Amino acid sequence: MTPPGFDPRSAPRGVSRAVLPGGRRVVVKRDVGAAAEAAGLRWLAVPGGPPVPEVLDAGQDWLVGEEVPAGSPSREAAAAFGRRLATLHAAGAPAFGSPPPGGPVEARIGGTGMRNVPGDSWPEWFAEHRILAYVRRARLPETAVFDEVCARLPDLAGPPEPPARLHGDLWSGNVLWSPTGAWLIDPAAHGGHRETDLAMLALFGLPHLDTVRSAYDDAAPLAPGWRDRVPLHQLFPLLVHTVLFGGRYAGQAVEAAHAALRT
């Protein structure tokens, strides 16, 4: 709990920084997705996993979290991050699409909605809740290629894997490099396929990505063909970006769908 004399609900909308009575520096977020984010951060705080900011207090549309000290990426930190990410994924989830404990079904990713609806089969769940749901919302001029991807997903998905505990929005901006290594922030946490987190890391250019993936693969070997499946797993973030920003992301999503079908 935050100390007396500090009211996070008086902070401006969005993300701001504050100093608590006593001198502790914190990040205050006022946003409609704050409750889901707080539940996600608590769920991702796995022993041996990547560090996440401690949630000091949270309400329906606000949270107060630990501020992460700034640092710089290094190969050593990237290797440690890869191993720790493997540990996080291995912590598992009850089902594909399952929300964190206490997290809402109607969650958020970036500035748009994301439904956490549990499913037993990853191909069917991914098709319905992470591809087609966003194709419908994006109003893309070309949708047949996405229908084909979904129809072929059982064959494109690779060997079956158990639900992994995903960050869910793991682009490079949500990896903070501190003096003690890489931290995770701003999750859209849910149960999913571990290759989705890794594919999202590749989408927007993470420093030392090859080191991260090599260390991950050493700790928890990836299934054969995982490199060929990167475009398939990138469909979700690309479609989210198409919903949010349109423009070139629509073309990238279509290209990724065609690439997924070529595997």
Rank of each mutant, 00 (worst) to 15 (best):
G23M: 11
Y249D: 03
A39Q: 04
E54Q: 15
A90R: 15
W226M: 10
F81A: 13
A45N: 12
V27H: 04
G33T: 03
A18P: 03
W226K: 11
P4E: 14
L176I: 14
V27E: 02
A11K: 07
A202I: 09
R84Q: 15
G22Q: 10
F146E: 04
T211S: 10
R75Y: 02
V117I: 14
P179E: 06
S10W: 02
G247K: 08
T211W: 04
G14M: 08
H258S: 13
V64F: 04
V64E: 04
R248G: 15
A182I: 09
E124Y: 00
R75E: 15
H258K: 15
H233L: 09
A256V: 09
P99L: 13
E67H: 12
A34W: 00
N174P: 10
L232T: 05
A78D: 02
L209Y: 02
P101D: 12
R25T: 14
M1W: 10
V145M: 13
R194P: 10
Y216G: 14
R75W: 06
A80W: 05
R136D: 12
R130M: 11
T211Q: 10
R115I: 02
L153I: 01
L132M: 14
D31W: 14
S178V: 06
G40M: 06
W183V: 12
L201P: 05
L222R: 13
F236D: 03
G33K: 06
G111F: 03
L132F: 00
P53H: 08
P94L: 08
R30F: 00
A219R: 15
L44Q: 08
G251W: 05
G251Q: 12
A138W: 01
C150Q: 01
G59S: 03
V52Q: 08
T211C: 12
R9L: 11
S16F: 04
P4K: 12
D147P: 07
W183M: 10
G247T: 05
P224R: 11
A182H: 02
Q252K: 14
S72H: 04
A188E: 00
R24F: 02
L209W: 01
A256N: 07
G158C: 06
L44Y: 03
R213P: 07
V15Q: 08
P99K: 12
G65N: 04
L184R: 07
G14T: 03
W122I: 06
A188N: 03
L232C: 07
F96V: 03
K29V: 09
A11C: 11
V105T: 15
E142M: 14
R83I: 09
V212K: 11
P101K: 13
G97P: 00
P224Y: 05
A39H: 02
R139P: 03
K29W: 00
P163K: 00
A220H: 11
R194L: 14
G110I: 08
L198V: 11
G48V: 13
D31M: 05
P69V: 12
F146V: 10
G102T: 06
T2K: 09
A35P: 01
A223L: 14
P101M: 13
V26L: 08
G173P: 04
A215C: 13
L232Y: 00
T180K: 13
G247Y: 01
A95P: 02
G205C: 09
V145K: 11
Y249R: 07
L235G: 11
P159D: 07
Q60M: 06
A18Y: 05
L232R: 06
A86T: 12
P100L: 12
A90L: 15
V46D: 09
